[in-house]
Design a protein around this nucleic acid. Sequence first.
DNA 1: GCCGATCTTGACACTATCGCTACGAGTTAT
DNA 2: ATAACTCGTAGCGATAGTGTCAAGATCGGC
Lengths: 222, 222
Amino acid sequence: MVDDEPQILRAMRINLRARDYEVDVAADGGTALRAAAARPPDLVVLDLGLPDMEGAEVIRGLRGWTTVPIIVLSGRADSADKVAALDAGADDYVTKPFGVDELLARIRAVTRRIGATTDATPVVKVGAFTVDLSARTVDPPDGGGEVRLTPTEWHLLEILLRNPGKLVSQRQLLQDVWGPQYQTETNYLRQYMAQLRRKLEADPGHPRHLLTEPGMGYRFQP
Amino acid sequence: MVDDEPQILRAMRINLRARDYEVDVAADGGTALRAAAARPPDLVVLDLGLPDMEGAEVIRGLRGWTTVPIIVLSGRADSADKVAALDAGADDYVTKPFGVDELLARIRAVTRRIGATTDATPVVKVGAFTVDLSARTVDPPDGGGEVRLTPTEWHLLEILLRNPGKLVSQRQLLQDVWGPQYQTETNYLRQYMAQLRRKLEADPGHPRHLLTEPGMGYRFQP
DNA sequence: GCCGATCTTGACACTATCGCTACGAGTTAT
DNA sequence: ATAACTCGTAGCGATAGTGTCAAGATCGGC
């Protein structure tokens, strides 16, 4: 739970603890990101209007490496704020003032979704490489130095790997990685798919696992 | 999209269609449940306060057999209503009046989550081939090399496969695949049906599943 | 305030797919 | 029996889509 007002933090913490949730708190964005990295949470409740960072920045800071559900609290009911937060990766957006029971219900709603879908296979083999989605590591076969991927490369690869064998449309990839206003910028996809293939395919010119379906999208073939 | 006010239905439908969503509408709970069963949607936007059923009843009616994402719209901001709807199985709850862009952002947020986890895989057998419409794959019987189809071929095949055993008229196929101004260009159909048969029929000269109904249209025979 | 890494953006061949025309075979109507 | 029609097949140029290279813009760390 991230909020800059100590009394709200206290109140929510008590409320949540009473329902048997374990609660870690942070008062600003930087602290929150470090705490989340140190002890990955199952859910983030994030108040906007933090002293040190823009709200969308915090969300992107989390989304760069985790798919943890994020519920945003905010005093601003402005539509543009909501859209920005949701498109940055938030799962829900609650406007203050809100009832505690409503927040609890929304927490149940998002965790119900996620809990049912936590498949216990965060490690995938892409050809000879071993990709660990939760640890964010890519290991080559001979145990040598590991392959480094940029945040955008991770984001793109993760979507494909979470849909093994399935075709993922260009629109969906662009929308999930870059946002809804980039749905036609297919050159981004070409650019980053090429980089992924250079790093993960034995023969980048003839990919065997990161496949193109012309005119439709891309597919990860296990 | 379920709403009892025709003008809201119309407005939303236009808005969503402009974003390339396919929209089916229903004006009451019973119609909605039947329509969802007949043609399972990828997302349900449900207005509360329907004439025939309680909102939570509709949600439970859907949740009984599908995990499709449900976004609830409501004029009532009462906390108890929100909790009831969310706990009945709704994924999000938006209070009227709301901005269209906010609803669109919430639609993106829930589909972003679900898109990766939807497991209802409708697989159809065309002779010895196994066609997975959601994964966009065609597998031959011996597990060997896979069959590749172009976007137009997929589009055409999908319409036929979604109407198993039924005759689909040439006009309808042409309109759905190429657009309303191509309703008489039957040569396109001949062209692409021949390609599909070459790829999916054991003896393309004597098709057993992709059948021609002379003068009328085509039919997929399971 | 500088520097390296990462993200954008533009440009250009190359290829597969598409839209379209044409023609023979089979079928139905007259 | 002949004509009119529909269907299957082949072939072609045009074009949209893709892979690739390169360079500018932006961000973050030291």
